[in-house]
């Protein structure tokens, strides 16, 4: 039984209304040499319809990480976060807030709503590269770590 997935490919859902930012993130994520798959939604509605579609395809079709901007039209990023974490279908997916705002109130609100991480987009491109690289390394293996831990517990029992 293969506990750790061989594939290094991560499925990432990027919820970002700004085209330029989406482009930047996509290129940065891809530039690390990993063949990651990025899906993008420009707002909450789009994101949920996508997620529901993927859910129908099976649990494995769901993204490994969700990168969420806070300042979004129509439905705010915070509201999307709440809905994601309230939904049993998607609540296990790590949600990383990726925003330009470093306001404390946004940060605390996000963590209260069980955001998995809160990252502020740096205006230094190198910093951005490192940040993205780290988050993929860490959160990319998150699910596998959880599975491993679950497996060990069941064996111990």
């Amino acid at each position: 039984m293969q506990l750790i997935r061989e594939s290094e490919t991560l499925k990432i859902l990027l919820i970002e209304d700004d085209n330029a930012h989406a482009k930047i993130l996509s290129r940065t994520i891809q530039s690390g040499g990993h063949t990651n798959y990025i899906e993008r939604a420009t707002d909450g509605e789009e994101a949920f319809s996508l997620l529901n579609r993927l859910h129908h395809q099976g649990p494995l079709a769901l993204p490994d990480i969700i990168l969420l901007d806070l300042k979004l039209p129509k439905i705010s990023g915070i509201e999307i976060l709440r809905q994601l974490k309230d939904n049993k279908k998607f609540c296990f997916i790590p949600v990383i807030i990726l925003t330009t705002s470093n306001a404390q109130k946004d940060k605390s609100l996000a963590y209260q709503l069980n955001a998995n991480s809160y990252l502020v987009k740096p205006d230094n491109p190198n910093e951005l590269k490192i940040m993205v690289s780290d988050l993929i390394k860490y959160w990319g293996t998150w699910n596998q770590t959880v599975e491993l831990l679950n497996h060990r517990e069941s064996h111990a029992n």
Binding site: D18, A20, H21, K71, S101, N102, A103, D123
Partner: peptide
């Protein structure tokens, strides 16, 4: 300030990144 910090920073991030690209 919140909005300005977001909305002004946003194009800054963009421009810096594309300049790097």
């Amino acid at each position: 300030i919140y909005t300005v910090s977001h909305d002004l920073k946003s194009p800054l991030v963009t421009s810096m990144s594309f300049l790097n690209f």
